[in-house]
Design a protein around this nucleic acid. Sequence first.
DNA 1: CGTGCTGTTGAGGACGATCAATGACGGTGG
DNA 2: CCACCGTCATTGATCGTCCTCAACAGCACG
Lengths: 249, 249
Amino acid sequence: MRTMDTSASLCLASKLRSLGADAGDLDMVLHAVKGRARVAAGTDVVRAGDIVEHLTLLIGGMACSYKWSEDGGRSIRVFHHAGDFCDLYQYVLPECDSAIGVQALTDAVVAVINHRDMDQLLRRPKLALAFWRATMLEAAIYRKRLTTASRRSALERVSHLLCEQLARSEAAGIRCARLPISQIDVADATGISVVHVNRTIQTLRSLKALSEESHLEVIDRKLLAQVAKFDGRYLDMPRHLSGWAVRVE
Amino acid sequence: MRTMDTSASLCLASKLRSLGADAGDLDMVLHAVKGRARVAAGTDVVRAGDIVEHLTLLIGGMACSYKWSEDGGRSIRVFHHAGDFCDLYQYVLPECDSAIGVQALTDAVVAVINHRDMDQLLRRPKLALAFWRATMLEAAIYRKRLTTASRRSALERVSHLLCEQLARSEAAGIRCARLPISQIDVADATGISVVHVNRTIQTLRSLKALSEESHLEVIDRKLLAQVAKFDGRYLDMPRHLSGWAVRVE
DNA sequence: CGTGCTGTTGAGGACGATCAATGACGGTGG
DNA sequence: CCACCGTCATTGATCGTCCTCAACAGCACG
C-alpha cells in the first residue's frame, strides 16, 4: 500500500466493510485509490462544471456539495465527512448535474479513483452492491431532509441538520462537539435566511443545547436531538449490515 | 414470455434499456418478473411495515410512496409512474425505512421480482449498473425537490410538482394532461396545507395554466413550466444514456 | 487603518398555517 | 326517489413564522 497512508485506508476500509464488501474487495479498491492530496479550507475540491474522469474521495476533513441557484444564492445539497464519496453520482450518471461543486469546509485530504478502474471494481458483485448502498445512504439523507425541510419549523430544521452532521462525523470516527460550519452554511443548507438562522441558533443557545461561543458547538446532544425530533436510524444502515452492536445513546 | 403481457414487457424493457441494459439483460429480467396483478385505486400496493421478500414493479397506472408522520399526517415522498420500481430501496437496504407504504392513485397493474432472483440478476454488471441508475434517478428527484421545497414559494412548488409528474408520465409513454392526483395529495407531497394548495391552484387557474375544472388538468404546459422554473433535464438521464434524440418541447 | 467576512440586532411586512364553515358530488340504504 | 354520509374542493378570517431591509460589531487580513 504505497499510495495510501494508514488513516486513509482505515476510513475507506471501515466504510466499505460496513456496506458489505469483503477483504478481497477492499484490497482491490485500495489499489485503485490514487493521488492523495491536501486541500485548504474554503477551496473547491470539485469545481462546478468540470467534467470529471474520476471519483473523488474525502479522506479527511469535512466538505459540502453545493450548487449556485439562478438567483445567485448558494444552495448546499449535502455535507461530506471523512470516508464519503463526493461525486459518485457523476460516475453513475455522467453529464447529469455537472453544475455541482464540492468545497472543503476544513483543511481536507482527498484522493481519487479513475472511472476506468471503477468499471473493473464493479465486476465484483458485492462491491457493486456496496457502492450502490453508499448512494442509497445518501438518498436516505435526501429523503429525510425532504420531509423535515417542507414540514418543520426553522428550529427543528436547524437542530436536525446539526444532529445529522454530528452523527455522521461520529460514524466517520470523529468525536468532536464542534462543527466547522458557519451560520451562512447552515442557511444555505436549510434554505432559511441567515438572519433567521442566527436567531434560531440563539434560541438553541438559550436552551443550553449549543455553547454561547460564536462557533457552532453542541453541548447537549440529547436536548438537541429532542428539539430536532432526530431519529438517527436512517443513517444506521451500515451498522445493520455489518452486524455491529446497536448504538446506545 | 408467459408471465408478462405486451404492455408490461414494453414499459419495463424501454425503461431498462434506457438505463443501459442490453438485450440479454432484458431477457433475464423479463423471466424473473412474476405475479402480475390488478390493484384498485386507493388501495395499498405495498403495506407500510410489511417485510417484503420481493421487489414491486408498477406496470400500469400511477401510485405514490408515503409515510405517516408522528403527528398523524401523511407525507408523500414520491409519485410512481408506469415502469417504476416501487421499493428498490427495500432490496438495497433491507430493514431500513420499512414504514413506507405505496398506494395506488389510479387502478393499477403491478408485478414482482423476488429478492433471490435479484441476486442473480445483479451478477450481470450492466444490469447492476442499470438498477443502480434507477435509484440514482430517484435520488435526483429527491435532490431537486429538496432545493425547491425549502427555497421556493407555494406557487413554484405546486407547479413544479405538476410539471415533474407530467414529464415523468410522458417519459412512461402516457401523454395525458390530466393528473390523477387530488389537492390533498399535492398538499401531502409538498408539505403545504390543503387550504393553501387550493388557493395556489386557483391562482394557476386564473393564469390559464390549469383548467377551471375541479380535477387537475394542465392546459398550458409552457406557462406552468415557466412559473415553476422547471428544468426537466434532471429527469432526462435515460435519454442521454440511450443516445436518444433530445426532446424538443 | 481600511476592507471584507461573519455574526448580531431591530422593525415591518408577506406568505402561508390554522380554524371554521360551506358547497359539490358520488355512493348507500331506506 | 330521497335522506344521509364521506370525501374532496372552496371560501373567509386571524395569526404566527420567517423574510427582507438596514445597520452595526467583532475579527482576520493585507
